[in-house]
Design a protein around this nucleic acid. Structure first.
Length: 304
DNA sequence: CTCTTCGGGACGTGAAACTG
DNA sequence: CAGTTTCACGTCCCGAAGAG
């Protein structure tokens, strides 16, 4: 069983690079540290430092690096437990670090965050807007706590805790010939002028697949990494855009129509709520996720 | 049930030996 | 020579056992 003292001394030596310096910092004899580290190595059956007697510094071995990373994880977890214990009674403090697809930033997030903040005024938000791929990367690095993203790619260290699918729609002006249709077959989009997401967005592949299966080649007027710009282009009349409806109780502006696409090859886009697998989340984040999940369930129907 | 004693484990210290 | 390791020994803590 790895003991606390051994780990404490190991961290000291790893950080200072020397048993002697660690001994000074920890106010114990160097021999005590040397013995504890030796016991740790015996316990783990691996050398933790490259030893060169007489040299001025010890270097971590690969096993040592691994153990140091492990101790950092433990420290983070302990910090988290302390924060959680403090927060249990009152939820007075906390920050939720959320990653979200761009389309949530216009309608859904401001109102959802407002409702949440009214309920828990001590909780603040740090929101990063980005594509599904980028958000999954940030989750894996623990730079955000939770991601709400369209087309978030699968990753072994990311857990999908809720998922729904949305049907892509053609966003057109009310004067467009398709405006009064209940749906449009994708094959009918072969002649229209459209806006497309650029290659930095994983969704682009979905467009390419859909067009390829339907054997159409719409005229691309605009390529951008911004879905808001694609929508704005449709609003201005520059071109049409294939996008999803806004999530939540969003009222479509006057002069615009979302016409669902159907036909062979049309892909329904997954909307995923994801967290980092195995990570213990702060109470404030858990609460946030619960409410977000409830909201997703409630509006699920409106997306269909 | 409470208090005391005892033994063992964990961990510390300091000196000496070792090494590059 | 500076830094690490080994060794002998001391201290503290905790649990078990016995006495009152």
């Amino acid at each position: 069983m790895i003991n606390n003292v051994g780990l404490k001394y190991f961290i000291g030596v790893a950080r200072s690079g020397s048993i002697r310096r660690a001994a000074e910092q920890l106010h114990v004899a160097a021999s005590a540290i040397s013995r504890q580290i030796q016991m740790l190595e015996e316990e783990l059956n691996a050398e933790l430092f490259e030893r060169h007697r007489g040299q001025k510094s010890l270097r971590l071995t690969a096993a040592g690096e691994l153990l140091l990373n492990y101790t950092r994880l433990i420290e983070n977890e302990l910090d988290q437990v302390r924060a959680d214990i403090r927060a249990i009674d009152t939820l007075q403090k906390g920050t939720v670090r959320l990653g979200a697809s761009e389309s949530f930033s216009r309608e859904f997030l401001p109102s959802f965050l407002h409702r949440f903040h009214s309920q828990y005024p001590g909780i603040t938000f740090n929101v990063i807007v980005g594509g599904g791929g980028k958000l999954v990367e940030l989750l894996a690095k623990d730079e955000i706590d939770v991601a709400l993203a369209y087309r978030a790619p699968d990753a072994f260290d990311v857990q999908v805790i809720a998922e729904t699918h949305v049907t892509p729609c053609l966003l057109v002006s009310t004067t467009h010939p398709f405006a009064n249709r209940r749906s449009v077959d994708i094959e009918e989009c072969g002649e229209i002028e459209i806006a497309l997401p650029d290659e930095s967005l994983t969704i682009r592949e979905s467009y390419v697949r859909m067009f390829s299966k339907a054997r159409i080649r719409p005229r691309t007027i605009l390529v951008t990494n911004s879905f808001e710009l694609m929508r704005a282009a449709a609003v201005s009349g520059l071109c049409n855009a294939i996008v999803n409806k806004y999530f939540g109780n969003y009222k479509v502006p006057r002069g615009l129509r979302y016409v669902p696409l159907h036909g062979e090859g049309v892909e329904r886009w997954p909307l995923r709520l994801c967290v980092h697998t195995g990570r213990s989340l702060p109470v404030s984040v858990k609460l946030f996720i619960e409410q977000l999940q409830a909201e997703m369930d409630a509006v699920d129907e409106s997306l269909q």
